[in-house]
Nucleic acid binder design. Structure first.
Lengths: 251, 251
DNA sequence: CGTTAACTTGAATTTTGTCAATGCCTGTGG
DNA sequence: CCACAGGCATTGACAAAATTCAAGTTAACG
């Protein structure tokens, strides 16, 4: 880590909070913008590019990552429809963004976005909340990278993907894995071989099942959750009530 | 990682941006609050506590961390004077906060803090900027945990501490390490033994020097920076101009 | 100045990474 | 629609890095 306090200002904002019907929502800021398409693998922007725009993911998945001097890649997040990328207080992007799958995005000028946020007492707390969500998520990822072993990382990742499948954060039994093993490895701080071996092992033990490389099913939810590692020892086997309806700031 | 998009909302805000003299600054929000003291090792709050207050660190250092079910600890950050902790959109804290050294803090009710932020067009962007800084910092830490080896982690950490010593982000040749080896280990995703061995090795090679366990000196800045790992391959051996004055694109 | 916790050092073990070979989807073009 | 190529994934054997366990050593604090 090269710096902490005086870092340049920029951030991704991720979240899937859907537009509040007729109300003013973050997503609605983008709603009249044209949709742009990117092919799988193509860059949206690079680290160091002038940060002219904020993007809203409309369809598909993208990855944000950094590259170390000698080429090692660390993926710091995957963004799904509804997520925002490039929200920034800085004049350059601090990471790379690429399409994992075919992706559709809407683009908004950074400056106009800022103004829209600043002038709307409804939008501001939403954006703030997204930032806080993203921060909490980043902290969980730090815990994973800092203290979990390969199996726990893979299980945690599968649980996360499973949660993404359903609109609330319940677990879906069917997991779609849009990214490659290399993407998984670079996100989880492992190698493709370790990812592969661990997944094979989980399948072998009947904890998950496979139907193609990018589609899996959860066979033993409890076991998977336990192996994910962050169980509070008791709350292991409960699963349905997990709604976390976030409080919204007083305006 | 148990969730990503729909996580509870809460965040630490770290930064050392000093109060802008006579102007309205984030720190000034706290300025008329009484100072509270905590002894080294004592908790400020626990994960799950009702999040009633936001704290400003006045003096000393504190750590924020999470504990996995089986007791493994992951420190997600160290907070220094000027940093805020507990800024939240949630009704409970999402992590533990403890004093590393003797600590003095000022406390502000979460609700009042929110109102102050919301009503001040001057404070809002400051808080937003701090959140973005913190996010950037978290991403750097993810890169470190994901892809750096023990030596690179230690060197990165020392560089970070060195930057903290000076008010701008230049490197100070004298590094004060307020935390224990265990804290370092739990922050860097290593064991105390590995931390110890690596530090010994750096000393042995004359890259850093030691004057007590908590005070070191940088002997070979260039080498230390190179070993920290995130060198851009060219910008390795230059050192004085390290202001990270980012190239600004032609407008 | 002694006690104790923190740190260091060493040896053995485990986990993960590396290198190399093979197997299997998937999407392209016939 | 099928065949095939090339990329992606799996598997295995070995190597390296970090952890674990077990003593020692040092330094902080009463």
């Amino acid at each position: 880590m090269l710096s902490a306090a005086n870092l340049p200002r920029q951030s991704v904002v991720t979240s899937n909070v859907p537009a509040g019907d007729g109300k003013v929502s973050l997503a609605s800021v983008f709603s009249d913008r044209p949709v742009e398409s990117f092919a799988a693998g193509s860059p949206i922007f690079w680290e160091g590019d002038k940060a002219r725009h904020v993007f809203e993911v409309v369809e598909g998945v993208l990855r944000i990552f950094k590259i170390l001097g000698d080429g090692r890649r660390a993926i710091t997040g995957f963004l799904y429809p509804g997520d925002l990328v490039g929200v920034s207080m800085r004049d350059v992007y601090l990471y790379n963004a690429e399409a994992v799958t075919a992706v559709k995005v809407r683009r908004f000028s950074s400056q106009a976005f800022q103004e829209a946020i600043n002038q709307s007492p409804e939008l501001r707390p939403q954006l703030f909340a997204k930032l806080c969500d993203e921060m909490a998520s980043a902290q969980d990822q730090m815990v994973l990278l800092s203290r979990k072993n390969a199996e726990e990382r893979i299980c945690s990742f599968l649980v996360m993907l499973s949660r993404r499948m359903s609109s609330d954060n319940n677990l879906s039994m069917n997991i779609e894995i849009p990214m490659s093993r290399l993407d998984m490895a670079d996100y989880l701080g492992l190698t493709i071989e370790t990812v592969s071996r661990t997944v094979t092992s989980l399948i072998g033990r009947g904890i998950i099942g496979q139907s193609g490389r990018h589609d899996m099913t959860i066979k033993k939810v409890d076991t998977l959750l336990r192996l994910a590692g962050d169980a509070d020892a008791d709350e292991v086997e409960s699963s349905p009530r997990k709604h976390t309806r976030p409080a919204v700031w007083p305006t």
